[in-house]
Write a protein that binds this DNA or RNA. Structure first.
Length: 469
RNA sequence: GCCCCCAUCGUCUAGUGGCCUAGGACACCACCCUCUCAAGGUGGCGGCACGGGUUCGAAUCCCGUUGGGGGUGCCA
């Protein structure tokens, strides 16, 4: 079962959507596997029937594909080899390394409380010689002495006293194997040489090793426990409390390239300091052994900055393609086409595209009241500015950005919005026109926007705003 | 409680005994550019948790303290 090339695996449990922490674990497995020319396997740990579902499995797979994390061979469904896991457990029972236990978790807890010592199972049924029944779980008999050690590529030597390891459950009373057993067994069965997973698995590793040894399954060549991804409270990211599913980021308009690039930088950094680079280069430079051991905060702000940069770097045609799924109508697609380059350099997320061109799509302009107050009420000479601009635009021959600009500048002069030299001050004058025509105080450059809006709609909106003042 | 792990700017990192008066990125601030907003340019703010060692020399090695996190399920 020893493969000729290093073999990695990502083993998600489909008990929730794939979140960025899992994605990062998958990515680091993938990066190292691809760099060293190893294999990347995928195993779905669906032994918890209650919480697993095929819908969740699809979500995990879909998210991985979206990120461009591919895998070798067929997906292994852990539920398919439950019989082998059960057989392994019984092998342990026959060898005297496991025993049946009928303690309920309430009993275990109350005994621990009475004892005053550490919580956890106390080995109550070790020598009771119980037979299997509907109420019994099979427990592994952990050694009382010695230590269990392993070398971790990220953390160095890690050692556990065996006497701190409780007799953990192998088979539930329902007969179903638990994670630890299935996980350890399958890694061996699949010939996994590199176990790369989250730091939260460190305390379970001695149990994993004890099991592999007891079953005579050998040990993986390499362990690497990755630093956890944490939230602003410095707590492990939770798919329940933190909104971090990969699918949500996708829906919000993040590019998978940006996501992968950012994720690679959590716990690792290229020596040359160049952070934004193609994934091929990351594969070349990545070293599992260089991963830092301390937890990393998942910083959405930085992710957004990366996304914006990736968006801007896209050729125009590609940008249009990427934006399309985020546009709700053909009209929006058409509107974007007229202003695409100007929009492209102003959005951080693809979901921001449509709001930016909404003024071109909507029949009636939707005025943002805060912007209105700022430009029309607090701004200087708004009424004069609008009136003068309207007449200038009415007289305009042709309808180009340059012509519109000239008319607005003339409006500014007429409204007295000029500098010491008598030159129009567009920075002050453009506000009322912008809000009247686009509804907002910020947006793409005004004159190009109005050219796209057209003479009729521009003038209608300008007149309506003028009337409202 | 017990076990395990972690500790460089606000955040992510570079740094593996002298190249460090600690470098980059995001964020933040200022200025420039400018029709708003972006983008771009320039500059700035800001860090080796603390205390002991080892060494000619420590962000880098050792010990301790403090702080933080993970685990402690018949979840994975």
């Amino acid at each position: 079962m020893t493969p000729s090339v290093p073999r990695f695996r990502f083993a998600p449990s489909p008990t929730g959507y794939l979140h960025v922490g899992n994605a990062r674990a998958a990515l680091f497995n993938w990066l190292e596997a691809r760099r060293v020319g190893g294999e990347m396997l995928l195993r779905v740990e669906d032994t918890d029937r209650e919480r697993s579902s095929s819908e969740l499995i699809d979500n995990v797979l879909e998210s991985l594909r979206w990120l461009g994390i591919d895998w070798d061979g067929d997906i292994v469904l852990q539920a398919d080899s439950l019989d082998a896991h059960r057989a392994a457990a019984h092998q342990l029972l026959d060898a005297g390394r496991a025993y049946w236990c009928d303690c309920t978790s309430e009993q275990v807890q109350s005994r621990a409380k009475e004892r005053g010592g550490p919580p956890g199972y106390d080995g109550f049924c070790r020598d009771r010689g119980l037979a299997r029944s509907e109420a019994t779980a099979l427990r592994f008999r952990a050694p009382d002495e010695g230590t269990t050690n392993f070398t971790d590529l990220v953390r160095g030597e890690v050692s556990f006293d065996n006497k701190t390891i409780e007799d953990f459950v192998l088979l539930r009373s329902s007969g179903l194997p638990v994670f630890l057993l299935s996980n350890a067994y399958d890694d061996a069965a699949m010939g996994i040489t590199h176990v790369v997973r989250g730091e939260d698995h460190v305390p379970g590793t001695p149990k994993y090793l004890l099991l592999r040894d007891a079953l005579d399954l050998g040990r993986p060549e390499v362990f690497a426990h990755l630093p956890l991804l944490v939230n602003e409270g410095r707590q492990k990211l939770s798919k329940r409390k933190d909104s971090v599913s990969v699918a949500e980021f996708r829906a919000a308009g993040y590019l998978p390239e940006a996501m992968v690039n950012y994720l690679a930088l959590l716990g690792w950094g290229p020596k040359d300091g160049v952070e934004i680079r193609p994934v091929e280069e990351i594969v070349e430079r990545f070293r599992l052994a260089d991963v830092t051991p301390s937890p990393a905060f998942f910083d959405v702000k930085k992710l957004q900055a990366f996304n914006a940069e990736y968006l801007r770097a896209l050729p125009l045609e590609r940008f249009l393609e990427r934006a399309r799924p985020f546009l709700s109508s053909d009209a929006a697609v058409g509107a974007l086409a007229t202003l695409a380059p100007l929009v492209q350099e102003r959005v951080r997320l693809l979901s921001e595209v449509e709001p930016m061109i909404a003024f071109l799509v909507d029949e009636e302009v939707r005025i943002d009241e805060e912007s209105w107050t700022k430009a029309m009420v607090k701004g200087k000479a708004a009424a004069e500015m609008l009136a003068a601009t309207i007449s200038g635009l009415e007289a305009l021959e042709g309808w180009t950005a340059d012509g519109i600009r000239a008319a607005v500048e003339a409006g500014a002069v007429a409204a007295g919005l000029v500098n010491a030299e008598g030159q129009p001050q567009l920075s002050k004058a453009q506000g009322p026109v912008r809000v009247a025509t686009t509804g907002r105080s910020v947006g793409p450059p005004l004159f190009e926007s109005l050219e796209a809006l057209g003479r009729e709609r521009t003038l209608d909106r300008l007149r309506a705003a003028s009337a409202r003042l």
